[in-house]
Nucleic acid binder design. Structure first.
Lengths: 285, 285
DNA sequence: GAAAATCTGTAACCCTCGTTACAGGAATTG
DNA sequence: CAATTCCTGTAACGAGGGTTACAGATTTTC
């Protein structure tokens, strides 16, 4: 499928292995690339050539000898590498060393989760996060929550917690056909929080369209590839979901949800505290 | 010196700050870039646009609004950033994760979550984990799941996933009074998975007592201080729940649940795969 | 030391990608 | 409800970059 198709070694590793096969000037290019990996390879042929003090064709012959059909192909491969590595800056486990990893599959799974949380929080736009917190902390705004087939538990989780600290919180449940019956009542003050990860559900997207059309503020919690609901959403928070498993992981998304809940609760604490005491009072009776 | 000339913030930070200035589709592009930083920006405008599901001109308007003269200029800036960061592989502060970004309480919260996951997995007894996986992978054993006030969403989560890969999975719902009506039917082959964290619910404990009395195998997912249900449980898996927040965190417990689910799914994959295909077949009709 | 083979840069070609004008459409405002 | 503004995709344009042929330079080999 990929241009090279040569095992799963890093391009850098392949260069080191094949270093003796290159001509002198090609080797020059190779060393420059290794010394500025992978940035040099992401530049244009002209820039790369100038950096290595060789000609552009030499650069092309170099990547060609590496087994790539074209220079764009080569760059694509570099970006893919960067992407994998970028998702888990510290976890090189997938590469070089044994894929089993130290500590077996459980440890690998754990590392995946930790990386996901790290990456998720790293990419959270502060303004977006604050805006969402402000919205949810506004007790005058009715809040409605819903999620997809597997993510609805996150909606339920947030619903349960929000209900404790503020009034006017509802979980949209029942048949998809009935969702819109509720949505037609939404207005400018309503907030709709939706959870949707890949294998996105179009019935959710339709609901989002209706809600947004009514003037409601849609908040979307999704994965890094963004649900189509993003089109209708005023605010988007995305979390990493990929792990070494047959399933996608909701851990990072729950982590983000809990962070939002913690911030909301902190924001309205005096009110929330009173409310909690009142609830506990009822409960004990 | 640089193409943009706007301070020394990273591009990611500038995007986060200016997020409100963008038009809806531009914001979509922004989110895609942040979620796949910086790789998405190193692709061609067409690829980037496709990834974000917007048109190429929108991508250009996006980078233009960021203050770059041209798309190549923008890419050059990204590469420079990547270069600086690459020189010190461990210096990830360059991006949002450090104190430069949101930092503060959010970072502390995130660290708490990560620590919880690490500690949780560290203390998981391998034998116990395997035993639980074996139990849940046995399709001849009916499985019933339930949780407490806030943890029931985890029971629902596990139910939803188990149901996909095997038959005989049920979520115990309804009034606490009715729980025991179901429990009287349990026998030696039944497995009851219960989630319970502090502020333990005694109605759950009573249910556990009944189920265990009938010979059912009780599996308990709880916090590090152990729910009283542990008394009746054959197997116990515990997770850390304490974080800098008014709430306890379920993130580590979800992480553990997902690890169990991943292992169960892997264990019975041939069967599960067939089952999934059958389900998808029904779904598409 | 001469001839062959290999290497490497120059220059021209062509194609892709970045760019921009424009029109349809959505949202907003009076 | 009409008018206006803003937004967004389509389509055509033009430049820059990837590519290639070729010739000079260098090394190798007999």
């Amino acid at each position: 499928m990929d241009g090279s198709g040569t095992g799963d070694l890093t391009i850098a590793e392949r260069i080191r292995d094949d270093l003796h096969r290159f001509t002198p000037t090609e080797r020059k290019a190779a060393h420059v690339l290794l010394a500025n990996y992978p940035v040099a390879g992401l530049e244009t042929t002209a820039e790369f050539a100038k950096r290595a003090d060789v000609s552009a064709p030499t650069v092309l012959r170099f990547v060609s000898r590496l087994g790539f059909q074209s220079y764009p192909d080569f760059q694509r491969a570099l970006r893919e590498e960067l992407d994998k590595q970028g998702q888990s800056p510290l976890a090189k486990k997938a590469y070089g060393s044994g894929e089993a990893g130290i500590g077996g599959p459980l440890a690998a799974f754990r590392d995946g989760l930790v990386d996901n949380i790290r990456e998720t929080f790293r990419h959270v736009p502060a303004a977006e996060f604050d805006a969402v917190v402000t919205l949810l902390a506004d007790r005058r705004r009715p809040v409605h929550l819903i999620g997809g087939r597997f993510t609805d538990v996150l909606a339920a989780h947030m619903t349960a917690h929000l209900r404790v600290v503020r009034p006017g919180v509802g979980h949209i449940s029942g048949q998809p056909g009935n969702w819109r019956d509720q949505a037609v009542d939404y207005g400018r003050s309503d907030v709709v929080v939706m959870f949707d990860i890949r294998r996105y559900q179009d019935d959710l997207a339709r609901l989002a369209g209706v809600a947004a059309g009514r003037g409601a503020t849609v908040v979307l919690m999704t994965d890094q590839w963004l649900s189509p609901i993003a089109r209708h959403a005023r605010h988007v928070l995305s979390a990493r979901v990929a792990v070494p498993s047959r399933w996608d992981s909701l851990t990072a998304m729950l982590a983000l949800s809990e962070a939002v809940l913690a911030a909301v609760t902190e924001r309205i604490w005096p009110d929330a505290e009173q409310r909690i005491q009142a609830i506990d009072g009822l409960r004990s009776k």
